[in-house]
Design a binder for these strands. Structure first.
Lengths: 157, 157
DNA sequence: ACTTAACCTAGCAAAATAGTCAACTATTGT
DNA sequence: ACAATAGTTGACTATTTTGCTAGGTTAAGT
């Protein structure tokens, strides 16, 4: 389990998607604008997320991306694993050069630790994160903004 | 909290140090040989660990490095944090450009998650990891002893 | 003095990260 | 049918991080 900014980008984008794709698909352009991530970088990340079966692309006007599963069925560990290269189990990938070595022992130790972190992140879903914090405040504000837009369009004078 | 191979190297080296520095300081050359990490890279890592007050260097012949604290008082999160750059809190470092933005909210969300991981790793000490290692060694030794016992009982003459 | 090993500095190659550009294909509203 | 939208792909570039090399200086034991 590797934790870098790449994983953070992926989780952030998925959070954005989860939040905004309730009604209709969300374009990467929108996510890029909201989260200040470059569009093309997002394309790369979402290509991996799509291959991992986490999101689905909808083409044509009104298209975009939407989640394949419920937010409660998508966990953080899977998102991060999807955008990262499958970490090669390093030097002692079961080979003979590292059987009775102490290097292999500490390696096992680290692998165990890594596994614990993965399990920990597997226990946190998108829904958990969405539930937290002042996300609702944003909902209210954005609803308000949307209302204003409606007002403007309603009275175009 | 960032999790990369760099942090793994640091934890591995600290484990080696904790395991071998019971009697006298351990040279980086020894650790480099045992853990197959380049000497100079270890020097870089230990420079940071030293500045973080986790290890102490002893110069001259018979010198090397030793831990500043008990293994039970050294946790994994601190080791990893010591060798990593202090991650700039990114774009919205409390500035005005990101106050009511949604980008800042998801950022907060990620920071919260990161904090959870840090707390989790803070709860794991070197002593904890060593204990596991010890258990394994004991298991191996006991297996070996058991074999000898079997031998003895097989040829009791 | 001489050796040992920490400590320091600069630099470098490979990899990962982050982002750009351009061409292409599929879908849909009009 | 056609134009607009939006996903898809691949190649390409810049920056940062990683892991390592090579060369020193400094402190402490023999």
């Amino acid at each position: 389990m590797r934790l870098t900014t790449k994983g953070r980008y992926a989780v952030t984008a998925m959070l954005d998607l989860a939040f905004h794709s309730q009604i209709k698909p969300v374009t990467l352009t929108d996510i890029a604008a909201r989260q200040t991530i470059s569009l093309s970088y997002l394309e790369q990340l979402f290509a991996r997320l799509r291959r991992a079966g986490m999101v689905k692309g909808v083409r044509g006007p009104g298209g975009g991306y939407k989640l394949c599963r419920k937010t409660s069925d998508i966990n953080i560990a899977d998102i991060i694993a999807a955008v990262n290269e499958p970490l090669d189990s390093t030097k002692c990938g079961g080979e003979a050069n590292c059987q009775k070595d102490q290097a292999c022992l500490t390696h096992d130790l680290w692998m165990g630790l890594s596994e614990q972190i993965r399990d920990y992140l597997k226990g946190i879903s998108l829904a958990d994160l969405l539930e937290k914090n002042q996300v609702q405040e944003v909902a209210i504000r954005q609803h308000h903004d949307a209302q204003q837009v409606i007002e403007i369009y309603r009275h175009p004078d």
